[in-house]
């Protein structure tokens, strides 16, 4: 089906919302409470548009496309309404971008930029809470940056179903709480970090990432999680050769963006100081550094000696269920094709 947005013809799938169709067609409409995985909320009202034949402004994240629909996203009325909402949000929180972790990837900042807001024209009331909730090891919650969009609450309850986050209070005092308003570190939170991934602003951030890189300095590399057998797809956010953050690949199967505490925060063992860095040979009970040639030749000669003396089945090997397929393939090829034994196994059973 087709619709017109700002005079441009856009092809859309039935069931899509106007916001989704616009996004698919490359047209930006500021929006804050909508996320593809947390769904329509219709709360923040930043995504309003004008639709020909409909009275008043329409909330584009809640409006399904219709064939032939004509939508305008930049009329003075639309922009004024959007600006008012963003002005109010900016005035009611501590939205200082300079050292914010989300600077450059903040949807509130994007909306303000689009609407040309340098500083909201209202009196700022930016400190409600003494300081952020730093009680948990991996996730930090700064309620003064929260815009009450509710994405974290929906994600915690409906995506990962850990059922920790909820809204408390109401109206101007609305806040996000863990369980019955416990510090996150004392709550039932399992630190999966889903809330941080869906937060549009800098209210919920990954502790490990704080101060590591500005968002525009990083590039993203997709890979597969090294822990359990689910095979979650990860986006590694890299600055040089350092991983500064891990997020779940939103479109990736099977996890579609979701991760657990290990997948999201268990990555930095690769940088540990005590990595093995040289081949080592034991002599008189002590390890000494050796060259690759020396170590390889020693292993080859020991295996050859055993095979010559006691037959091929006197050697055996255990492969690794954590390492890549190609490593296991070459190891079994070595045992079968070179050593001539089928004494090759791995911990398939633990």
């Amino acid at each position: 089906m087709k619709l017109i947005i700002n005079g441009k013809e856009i092809v859309a799938q039935p069931g899509m919302t106007v916001l989704e169709a616009a996004k698919a067609g490359g047209i930006y409409i500021p929006s804050l409470c909508y996320h593809p995985r947390t769904g329509q909320a219709g709360k923040c009202r930043v995504c309003v548009v004008e639709v020909e034949g409909m009275r008043g402004l329409q909330v584009s994240c809640n409006l399904k496309v219709q064939d032939g629909m004509s939508v305008k996203t930049k009329t003075p009325q639309v922009l004024a309404a959007q600006k008012l909402v963003v002005d109010l949000l900016l005035a009611t929180g501590k939205h200082d971008c300079i050292a914010c972790e989300s600077n450059g990837k903040c949807e509130l900042q994007d909306a303000a930029y689009y609407l040309g807001i340098e500083r909201a024209p209202f009196k700022y009331d930016d400190i409600h809470y003494a300081e952020g909730d730093k009680s948990a090891p991996f996730v930090r919650l700064d309620k003064d940056k929260c815009i009450s969009c509710g994405r974290c609450v929906v994600a915690c309850n409906n995506q990962v179903v850990n059922e920790v986050l909820d809204f408390a209070q109401r109206g101007y005092r609305t806040e996000i709480v863990c369980d019955d308003d416990k510090p996150m570190g004392d709550s039932s939170c399992v630190q999966c970090g889903e809330c941080s991934q869906v937060c549009p602003v800098g209210a919920i951030v990954d502790v490990k990432s704080v101060g590591k890189a500005r968002s525009w300095e990083t590039k993203v590399v997709r890979t597969t999680c090294p822990y359990c057998g689910v095979g979650c797809q990860l986006d590694l956010h890299m600055k040089g050769d350092q991983i500064v953050q891990v997020t779940g690949t939103e479109e990736g199967s099977p996890n579609k963006g979701k991760l657990c505490v290990k997948g999201r925060y268990g990555y930095d063992f690769i940088y540990a100081e005590d990595r093995l860095t040289h081949p080592l040979i034991k002599e008189n009970g002590e390890f000494r550094k050796a060259s690759w040639d020396e170590a390889i030749n020693l292993v080859a000669s020991k295996f050859k000696e055993a095979i010559d003396k006691y037959g091929p089945d006197s050697v055996a090997g255990v492969s690794c269920a954590r390492s890549i397929n190609e490593d296991s393939y070459n190891m079994q090829k070595l045992f079968r094709g070179v050593f001539k034994t089928n004494n090759i196994d791995h911990c398939a059973r633990t």
Partner: peptide
């Protein structure tokens, strides 16, 4: 484990 299935598939 992340690659038990794979290590089996590879004939380890």
């Amino acid at each position: 484990q992340n690659n038990v299935q794979g290590a089996c598939d590879m004939g380890a």
